[in-house]
Amino acid sequence: MELALLYSGGKDSTLAALLLDSFYDVTLVTACFGVTEDWRHAREAARALGYGFERVELDPDVAREAVDRIYDDGYPRNGIQRVHIHALERVAELDVTAIADGTRRDDRVPTVSRAQAQSLEDRYDVDYLSPLSGFGRRAIDRLVERRLDVESGPSAAVPKADYESELRALLAEVHGDAAVSEVFPDHTQTRVRGLKER
């Protein structure tokens, strides 16, 4: 069975791939607006892990809507949520049996509600899987420590292929660099370099 996993090159989506590959033929799929070249980081991670890789283009109108929403709200949650659902819809358009992402139990954003998951499944005739939905942050960190070689640091210093970097770039373009630091909180981000040797 073919599964397309929405992939950023970070620890969560990588762990989701590792959990699912016993049951599915997993292809890692990065969704982007074409604003930056950060999607290449996900491609490098996919190669290092031995997975197939694809890239899908997102609708630029969704990016503009998300940036306007982020700026108007003064925080990124609703804009990122909008983009995540759109990205899952684009991935669901591929010829696959199932789609998945790396959302965790304690994520504040993005999340996929039961109704959103059922809507995706009904509209695109796919199964939606969220293999990390039962895992908390501490459990994720323990699994990462055991299996993955990762680079960590501030989100601006460790680019990966999530749409947040593209939304940051668009926000700066439309509203100036100061808007990015006002709206996006600093947080630690990880980028996967490969698997640890056992």
Rank of each mutant, 00 (worst) to 15 (best):
P110Y: 09
R191D: 04
R90Q: 05
G74Q: 12
G194A: 04
G194E: 06
Y71D: 05
D73Y: 11
F23N: 02
P159E: 00
A16D: 01
A31H: 06
I99D: 09
L148C: 03
V192L: 05
A92G: 01
A87G: 09
L6F: 02
E54N: 03
R108M: 08
M1Q: 09
N78T: 00
E37W: 11
G102K: 03
A45K: 01
R147K: 03
L120V: 02
E182I: 01
G34Y: 05
P76F: 08
R198E: 02
P154S: 07
G74C: 15
R191Q: 07
L171W: 10
A31W: 10
A16H: 01
T188L: 15
V29C: 11
L28H: 10
V126L: 08
V109C: 06
H41F: 13
T188S: 15
V112C: 06
L49N: 05
A100M: 04
E44V: 00
Y71F: 13
L167S: 07
R77K: 15
R90C: 10
Y71N: 14
S181A: 15
A156M: 11
D106E: 12
R47L: 13
T30K: 11
R82L: 15
A48C: 01
R77E: 14
G9P: 09
D125A: 14
P60I: 01
T30R: 07
E37N: 12
Q81L: 11
Q81M: 12
L15N: 02
A157I: 06
R69D: 04
R138C: 14
R108P: 06
A66Y: 08
D122F: 00
R193H: 09
A178P: 06
L6N: 05
V35H: 12
Y71T: 13
A178H: 13
V126S: 02
E93Y: 07
Q81R: 14
P185E: 14
Y75Q: 15
D186V: 15
R137A: 14
E2I: 07
V183I: 12
A117I: 12
R168Q: 03
H41P: 01
S113D: 07
D61R: 03
A87F: 02
D61A: 13
D25L: 08
I70H: 08
L94W: 01
T27L: 00
S155K: 13
L49E: 03
R147C: 05
Y51G: 04
A179Q: 00
D25V: 06
G176H: 10
L170H: 11
R146L: 07
I70R: 06
D127Y: 12
S155E: 03
Q189P: 11
N78P: 09
P110Q: 10
D106L: 04
H187G: 12
Y51F: 12
P76Y: 06
G194W: 02
E93D: 10
D59K: 05
D73M: 08
G9W: 04
T97C: 07
A31T: 11
G176T: 06
L132H: 00
V56L: 07
Y163Q: 14
L49D: 02
A17H: 00
E145T: 07
T97K: 05
P76M: 11
L19P: 06
Q118A: 14
P60K: 03
R138Q: 12
L129T: 10
V144P: 04
V126P: 05
R105G: 10
V174W: 15
I80S: 15
D95R: 03
R114L: 09
I85Y: 15
